[in-house]
Design a protein around this nucleic acid. Sequence first.
DNA 1: AAGTGTGAAGGCCTTCACAGCA
DNA 2: TGCTGTGAAGGCCTTCACACTT
Lengths: 217, 217
Amino acid sequence: MARRDRDPSPVVPKAAAARLSLYLRFLESLREHGVPTTSSQKLAAGVGVTAAQVRKDLGYFGQFGLPGIGYRIDHLVDELRRILGTDRTWNVALVGIGNLGSALAEYRGFERQGFRFVALFDRDPAIVGRAFGSLAVDSIESVEPVVRVRGVELGIIAVPAPAAQEVADLLVAAGIRGIYNFAPAVLQLPPQVAYVSIDLAVELEQLSFSVTQQRPT
Amino acid sequence: MARRDRDPSPVVPKAAAARLSLYLRFLESLREHGVPTTSSQKLAAGVGVTAAQVRKDLGYFGQFGLPGIGYRIDHLVDELRRILGTDRTWNVALVGIGNLGSALAEYRGFERQGFRFVALFDRDPAIVGRAFGSLAVDSIESVEPVVRVRGVELGIIAVPAPAAQEVADLLVAAGIRGIYNFAPAVLQLPPQVAYVSIDLAVELEQLSFSVTQQRPT
DNA sequence: AAGTGTGAAGGCCTTCACAGCA
DNA sequence: TGCTGTGAAGGCCTTCACACTT
């Protein structure tokens, strides 16, 4: 007996989605140089993949190219932004204003892509109240009301590993929709909350592994 | 006609190597709690993969388990460190002492895994000379001699995107063996130089993509 | 009885190759 | 002619299943 609604939306390989951001970065830099169109070949060379892969990846989301011509950069940039969800502004909260958190709070790269910090939290009373630009650090106690009032949708966790799960639970309880975790810990989250995790030391270990194996990544 | 030396060393899936670090983190935390042994099942639950995957991944590097018992944690930690190359200390140089670079210079997580900063560089005269712990920031001009004299093997790039390739070239010319890049740029490097790249904003875009698709990563 | 190590099967992702369009 | 879009083929990675070990 056939099941209805089996796999309702197009299945996009996770790896393909990850490359979309790289394509977008490269297209933006081309646009800054006034280039009007490009090809899958040039795009591929710019981000270090094959031309077939570029076409296949874009093909999961629609038809954006012109046979014989290539891709109109303005158009493809708009489409990629829409697909990635960065054609709008996201309200972001940052929890943990230590070394890494402070740097993230001042990092300009997020804002450029449509991510805006609207709340900063820390547990340490010596840090609560400190100002970053026009934003003041709030106490971790006030996560729930602040997240709701300011319409925070994404949370960034930059606290020590032992506190990470607890912070994640707070953010989830406050209704956050996605978590970006820098703590070296694996978080347990409900399936409806999106999750991206980066462990800076793990990545560095991958480098020492590559060097040790005498093989470039 | 058969080719000699075809594929001389065991082929390890890249993804498998990446998980080794996660296994190591989890094992270290178990050890801190005084646990003497564990199983592929428990290890898998701790890092969010399947037990078969754990056994397969470890199987690429040797036989570390005891049938009926599991894995001796002390032993497996030592083996993983050896495999990942973190059973020794690595001398690391950090280039670009802005917000992110400053945070990385003070981040304790690297040292804990055997990575030691022995040189800091920046182009800005206002930053050169500033001290981080016992380390002073050197001018970018002195990369080559400093890298050679202090035996730097790995370089971390935390400069703006337009300067990243130039900095990478300097590090390569100085004889560095691996580069960890935080700049939102794709670097061209000779094949013998290992390469790991993280774009913090790209990862955040993956989060907004997941939320937009209403699908957890 | 419990749990590893591993060939075989399966599935997903990448590469190939070319029809079709500008 | 140049380049995209896309089925088909190929390859890599994951999952399965069980022989084997303690």
